[in-house]
Write a protein that binds this DNA or RNA. Structure first.
Ligand SMILES: [Mn+2]
Ligand SMILES: [Mn+2]
Ligand SMILES: [Zn+2]
Ligand SMILES: [Zn+2]
Lengths: 140, 140
DNA sequence: CTATTTTTGCAACACTGTTGCAAATATTTT
DNA sequence: AAAATATTTGCAACAGTGTTGCAAAAATAG
């Protein structure tokens, strides 16, 4: 069980049911989840705008990390997952399987440091590899 | 002037006005352009669905390359630009300036080869770096 | 417990994605 | 070049996400 209360407290956000559920859902999931996948796992029928606003604020506060898969897909992960603390500390790639659509963080490899042109400043990165996962490959 | 006719011919797509304009617009642009930025540069008022379908089919045929910036932004480039032929051949990073929102292909650097877990197959990559460009940096 | 602050749900609108279908246009065949 | 065929376009329509304003509800501070 994760200390959701602590996470919210640290960034001075109220402890609401939806927020605690979102964090629990992501803590339990081994995959990055979309807004809709999170919505389907919520216990009650919350409003979609509220979910949108909560994912947004949790991302802005740095509690959640948003992966931009493509125009119609974006996924969220909880870097401080109970069983994975620390793995997310460095830049890493993400993998989206084009058959099953699952998204995984490839935290065991770290891309070399990005070198930008003179005068450019890096703030954040979004690295996604698209392909076929092992499970899907073994199915056909 | 680019051989738009050749490009379309090669993939057996009809030579329509919109398609030729799209290719000309991207050939002229030093930046990756969004659907809307392309729409604004079109000579006549084409239908947005048609533009969407053309960008889609041109991307599927491999003539255009689509960069997934984030959930509300995706950009298109013409890798075979008249003055840049070949630069796009290898995997490369893209840079989005969070102040001016411009997106550039960083074709002079190539990230090291991606290594995936055993059994995974890579099909495509999408690497985006967010930050501040030199121009914007010099403004403040 | 009360006052204050924050969050929620709802309505409303914007934009992109997506499909079906008939009309228009491009290509192929005679 | 005209007719036949294949492809593309524009329009209507709907879906999903993003986004804001605002009043009601819930959480937090005093
Ligand atoms: Mn990640
Ligand atoms: Mn590029
Ligand atoms: Zn898969
Ligand atoms: Zn800039």
């Amino acid at each position: 069980m994760m200390q959701t209360e602590k996470l919210l407290q640290n960034v001075r956000l109220s402890q609401t049911n939806m927020r605690k559920e979102i964090l629990d859902i992501l803590d339990d999931s081994s995959l990055a989840l979309s807004m809709n996948e999170i919505k389907l796992r919520l216990k009650s029928n919350y409003n979609r705008v509220t979910l949108y606003r909560n994912l947004k604020v949790l991302t802005e506060k740095g509690i959640l990390h948003q992966i931009h898969i493509d125009r119609q897909d974006s996924k969220y992960v909880l870097p401080l997952k109970t069983d994975k603390a620390g793995e997310h500390d460095q830049e890493h790639l993400h993998f989206k399987c084009l058959m099953c659509n699952e998204v995984k963080c490839l935290t065991d490899q770290h891309p070399e440091q990005v070198v930008l042109p003179e005068g450019y400043e890096k703030i954040e990165v979004n690295f996604v590899v698209y392909g076929i996962c092992r499970t899907c490959k073994n199915k056909n």
